[in-house]
Write a protein that binds this DNA or RNA. Structure first.
Lengths: 345, 345
DNA sequence: TTGTATGCGTTATCAT
DNA sequence: ATGATAACGCATACAA
């Protein structure tokens, strides 16, 4: 295929001129430019991006490193990033490390020279990798366990979401509220659990370890949790599943056991996945706007990438809004809109 | 940051040796190699991928160009591609052209030099762009309207899916089956409609234009279709929505109108989106395995990318399997597995 | 086994 | 306004 040299030769100019034409430099006569364009078109010349990157040290690409490319959450994050990035003409290079933290370093390295900045959603143990990346590229962290003062971050207000949910349940009269937790190593799971305990204390209730049922964020663990729950005496009147997947399993198990969810027992979730509103009863949960998170992250990263001087890292916290539907026993019609969403308490 | 030259100098060797060490060449003494590794580590040297790409003409990256990054379908395609690609150590560079075919050329060009091959799901009108890309890179087409003999492709058996669905409905005794179509320009929509007509004819029934209600694949168009449907006299006993989104709208509108879906009227969809099994009644539909499509496409692309000589384009057709649940009025328990899936007829 | 030198396809700095 | 030429950071053919 034709290179810039071929075009230059065929147009009877130097490669410098061709380069200028393709970069819309003003320092070139209209006639020359037109001739070059025509020749380039005839030769079907496409500039090589790798070569451009090498000289300019810019790629107009944002790297995205996620645990996985699976599921609504990550998919929406990607879409949010892409949405914001393309407005500035940036592309995205995505990669998942698939639960293998060892791959984080490897992938980050392979992105060097191919991206102008990197957005990462990685476990704590990869913090040293983050530091290394940070030395060469702007980095934005997604949901880090704690704010890293050297890079910007976007975090989800898990704690606030839990607080709002428990406050709502307490407000409905519940005094014995169980929780189904997520994986111990998971930041979100951890924060949601802490928010739950905190909310109980704030309401004058005492967190009780027997009310904390272990789950792993997967549907089946919610299913299993139902059994443990029903064995408790006295039986809790409400269960807060720390994610919707588990709430789904919980509801089907409880329903199968003859428990009327919403009436006999309140069940709530966290995430507001698509199916939440299609469940029967429709699931009361906490809405997480992954799209907005991705967009916010891209916003931060782009300003760093496009700025000449160092920018102060900033930390944005995404709100987690309570969405009242039926599974908590509330009358869903009291909510403000058709989807039953209301502001967190 | 350190370059290969810095490492060479600090280790007291030439850059060629450093390069050999990083490429695991056997032509280097163990001691030299160890010294280079140590020095490289001390200097925190990371090779620049753009420079590597430029010299080797390889990127170990697959480009993915989709209409959008939104929704389950594309998300699953991406995951399928990624799943297969990373097995061979490839990354993926994804981009959406967001319903702007003009951007297809632009994006494809920007990928040159950054990917070893390109997977595209583009409209017919971009066929000339495909040809241009094809001259420089291996290309795999996703769901092209017709097989392009110059590049490999992965297509969905829309026609077969429709046939299976209509056969099933006919088998249940329905003789007046309406359809809600998709956007006219959409390949899938088109093929699903043709399959419907064909199946009717094969069953000795006559396609009737008044039974073909226009939709646009969005939930609301299914909602609106209900009105048209109920106005028909005689009223069809079954409706085949050409995608699940519209089926969702259809079911809620019909239910609101007092029609018992599954009993008074059979409603079926196409795609088998996640919520299909959570609907009440659970949706009978045609399962589309987007993950498998992505994986199959990546498989084809990788063989082309990694092969020395030209490979013959191959065309794979992904099956679309009938999933019998409740909305068609069938007893879902007759299906073979818990999810109610059965082979297409 | 290691080093030298050239090239990959651009952009950018000088000249002219 | 245009051209020569030196980078950019690496891989590799060839020499030693």
């Amino acid at each position: 295929m034709a290179t810039i040299r071929d075009v230059a030769k065929a147009a009877g100019v130097s490669i410098a001129t061709v380069s200028r034409v393709f970069n819309n430099s003003a320092l070139v006569t209209r006639e020359t430019a037109e001739r070059v364009w025509r020749v380039a078109n005839d030769l079907d010349y496409w500039p090589n991006s790798a070569a451009m990157s090498l000289t300019t040290n810019r790629t107009r690409t944002l790297g995205v490193l996620l645990p996985d490319l699976y599921g609504e959450f990550f998919s929406e994050i990607i879409r949010g990033i892409d949405d914001r990035a393309r407005r500035d003409g940036y592309q995205i290079l995505v990669s998942g490390f698939h639960d293998d933290p060892g791959r984080v370093l490897e992938i980050a390295r392979s992105m060097l020279g191919r991206v102008d900045g990197l957005m990462m959603l990685v476990p704590d143990e990869s913090i040293d990798v983050v530091a290394k990346v940070r030395r060469r590229l702007p980095v934005v962290l997604l949901n880090p366990r704690e704010e890293q003062n050297h890079c910007s971050s976007v975090r989800l207000d898990n704690r606030g979401g839990s607080l709002g949910m428990i406050q709502h349940l307490v407000g409905m009269g519940h005094r014995d509220i169980a929780i189904v937790t997520g994986p111990q190593t998971n930041v979100d799971a951890d924060e949601r659990l802490l928010g739950y305990r905190e909310a109980l204390l704030a309401a004058g209730l005492k967190p009780d370890p027997t009310r904390e049922i272990a789950g792993d964020f997967r549907e089946f663990s919610g299913f299993k949790a139902a059994e443990e729950l029903l064995a408790l005496a006295p039986r809790p009147t409400a269960v807060f599943a720390t994610n919707d997947n588990m709430a789904v399993g919980l509801i089907s198990a409880l329903t199968a056991a003859g428990v009327q969810v919403g009436e006999d027992m309140a069940v709530t979730g966290f995430d507001d996945i698509t199916i939440a509103r299609y469940l029967r009863p429709a699931l009361t949960t906490v809405h997480v706007d992954a799209f907005a998170m991705g967009r916010a992250g891209a916003e931060l990263l782009l300003t760093e990438v496009q700025s000449e001087e160092e920018v102060e890292p900033s930390h944005v916290v995404m709100p987690a809004e309570l969405v009242i539907r039926e599974s908590c026993g509330a009358d869903a019609s009291q909510a403000q809109d058709g989807q039953g969403r209301s502001a967190a308490g």
